[in-house]
Design a protein around this nucleic acid. Structure first.
Lengths: 256, 256
DNA sequence: GTGTTTTGTTCGAGTAGCTTGAATCAGTGC
DNA sequence: GCACTGATTCAAGCTACTCGAACAAAACAC
């Protein structure tokens, strides 16, 4: 979970292959020609890359179109299961969704960004861009800020240096000093709010799951339309509920 | 979903990188030295590979140990969502799990093998080796055989030629002629049984989801202990239930 | 404590093999 | 029919990937 070290001489071939996967993730499907325009190399090279990936089931051919193969699910599931947190958090996230009737997410930090490892929707929950596996900036949402505030200062600095503070809505915190103030506030109260900082009209609360040293190993958030998530429900009721859950998960993680 | 063509000159670098991912999938975690023993190249090369993969979040470093990064989830989810089948099948698989109280799987064919794209467990359902994303031989289980029987003969032959008929339990069909007979039977009755052919003590029924030309686009299966899945419940009740569900899904897939 | 072994990591040189562009083939539109 | 766009193949050239040796750092034996 640490910041990845700069690689001295990365293998270009691998990086270009990942570039292909990334492009297909964003654009769903692509032809050899289209990919050649995106990468910066000869068409024959792109062709060979994509054929190699397809021969290994990482890509699937459909006529001239290529897409990501579901073999990735295999790798993804293995990775997810490694996070014991997933096993501990899943049932409680499900319960929270039932209880609050809103969208619940469990996220962890990886390489200075957040990854949603599990989500459950309540009866009224909103659909957002988010998906399982979705990678996000820590400073842009409730769970991420909850995690960020419960990391060592040095790691927070590293993270900001590495990824910057890109904005997403007019409300997103993009100023370093402002973020540090917010972090202090979150540390004091023990949980984080998100007032339309990631999606317009969306509010959220996030609380960190911490280890015995009070370092975040993940976070859980509740999000919903600003119209429903407001007043004492947002300010008191949800935080209390969340804190109970994250404490319980934290204890279970510490005492297997 | 077709059989992937043999690649003329696959890119070795990419294949070796995939080899690393595959090893980590099987062994959860590995060091540079361990991986060097597995691959057949210099330690410095392995090192460069793993660092490059880690720098792109496909691998995560934890001290000297490397594991798969959950970035794969991201790719996997994108791939899964492409299969519209997933959206159609999910709610019905959930219902079946509730109703039968056994384990339900939805699988598709990719490159001549089956991939579990969604699973739901009923109250009493058994835990097997299977996972979402799990790749399997078509001839070894109920859903796979249901799919196999509803493919064009040419594709069946190609599949057998490509992957052979490896055994798994003493009951697995490993003889070509026997398999063709079984395929005829399955085509006649419209669904497939699995009597301890993949796991000892486990029975299952699988029915294909077909398109307008009666070609399989996937399958749904119910599996459970042989002691519970037997007699008229297995022979009549479950098949009827399954056929209703797969027909409904097939119709929805044909008329979006 | 010291010597020994095992690990990850760096670096320059050499050549395996990746990249390239041109040529060929397959399909579409006009 | 021809032109055009796309995928695919191939030999030749040179990039950059691989290697082994050397170093650093940690783990271990005694």
């Amino acid at each position: 979970m640490a910041i990845p070290p700069a690689v001295n001489r990365p293998v270009g071939t691998i990086e270009r292959a990942i570039e292909i996967m990334e492009y297909l993730k964003e654009n769903d499907t692509a032809t050899v020609s289209e990919m050649t325009d995106h990468l910066d190399c000869a068409k024959s090279t792109t062709h060979r890359y994509m054929k190699t990936l397809a021969a290994n089931s990482l890509l699937v051919e459909d006529g001239n179109e290529y897409q990501l193969g579901i073999r990735f699910l295999d790798y993804g599931e293995v990775a997810r299961n490694k996070y014991r947190l997933y096993d501990e958090a899943k049932p409680r996230v499900d319960e929270l969704a039932e209880e609050t009737e809103e969208k619940i997410w469990c996220a962890v930090e990886e390489h200075g960004r957040s990854v949603h490892i599990y989500g459950a929707q309540g009866k009224h929950s909103v659909q957002t861009y988010a998906r399982v596996g979705h990678r996000n900036y820590l400073h842009q949402h409730a769970a991420g800020k909850a995690i960020l505030a419960h990391l060592p200062d040095s790691q927070i600095t590293e993270t900001i240096d590495r990824h910057g503070l890109p904005g997403r809505t007019p409300e997103t915190i993009t100023d370093r000093d402002e973020l540090w103030e917010e972090i202090e506030t979150i540390r004091d109260r023990g949980y984080a709010f998100n007032f339309q900082e990631s999606v317009e009209g969306l509010h959220a609360v996030g609380a960190p799951i911490t280890d015995e040293n009070d370092i975040a190993i993940g976070a859980i958030s509740v999000s919903g339309p600003a119209s429903r998530l407001e007043g004492p429900f947002l300010r008191d009721e949800l935080p209390t509920l969340l804190l109970g859950v994250v404490n319980e998960i934290g204890i279970n993680m510490a005492h297997p």
